[in-house]
């Protein structure tokens, strides 16, 4: 039961976070590079990113029912906005001198974006991605707590129903471990690489 709950939660997290990461980076780059998009969606993105993602659950259930999709929507919405906001500011803060230098060497359009702007913004995008991960984990746990559908959140709820404090605490410890482990597995090597190249201190 425990193993199944872990697998269920991790798979959901992986899928929802993956979608949020791609979408958030694309949205962030778009906001930083396109004035039209910025004017159209900028205030909306900032405003919505202040909404706790679990607030989307009622709407998600109304639209998609008590389904896998509903919980994914909550996870994605929880992670995509912080990633987009961090990406936008990372791209906006790329030193203009680097872009100018690249342009004098003939870089334009997509090659300028992929070869210079995104690498230059990578440290900021990475911290946005990390933030997005914790948001995704929180949204998932909240969602799983609120409606029965397997996963670690639901196991917490079961523990409460049974009055099993040990189970509840055990699951909390598991969630902490999951957070740390994912940090090491997903983000650590990128952070080390950034500090090696940029010469900045690695965060522990």
């Amino acid at each position: 039961m425990l193993l199944r709950a872990i697998v269920t939660s991790v798979l959901r997290l992986g899928l929802g976070y993956g979608v949020a990461l791609v979408g958030g980076v694309l949205l962030g780059v778009g906001l930083a590079r396109s004035r039209a998009l910025k004017e159209l969606a900028g205030p909306l993105v900032l405003g919505l990113s202040a909404v706790p993602s679990i607030c989307w659950l009622p709407l998600a259930i109304l639209w998609f029912g008590l389904s896998e999709l509903a919980i994914q929507v909550v996870v994605i919405l929880g992670a995509v906005l912080p990633i987009a906001v961090a990406t936008e500011s990372a791209v906006a803060q790329v030193p203009p001198q680097l872009v100018r230098a690249a342009r004098t060497m003939g870089a334009r359009g997509p090659r300028l974006l992929y070869g210079v702007i995104l690498p230059a913004a990578f440290p900021g995008i990475l911290s946005g991605a990390k933030l997005g991960w914790t948001f995704a984990l929180r949204s998932l746990m909240a969602g799983e707590l609120l409606f029965v559908s397997g996963g670690l959140g639901q196991l917490l709820e079961t523990g409460r129903d049974l009055g099993d404090t040990a189970l509840v605490l055990g699951v909390v410890v598991l969630i902490v471990a999951l957070g740390r482990l994912s940090d090491v597995l997903l983000f650590r090597r990128f952070e080390l690489e950034v500090s090696r190249r940029w010469g900045t201190e690695a965060a522990s």
Binding site: R100, T104, M105, V116, A120, W198
Partner: peptide
């Protein structure tokens, strides 16, 4: 802009994520 006219800026503007060799090879 054209590679026939190269610019050297006050702050060097080398790409921090590339080694020196990769920087020189970039253009």
């Amino acid at each position: 802009p054209s590679p026939a006219r190269a610019v050297v800026f006050q702050d060097a503007a080398l790409f921090p994520w590339l080694t020196l060799q990769q920087n020189v090879e970039y253009p």
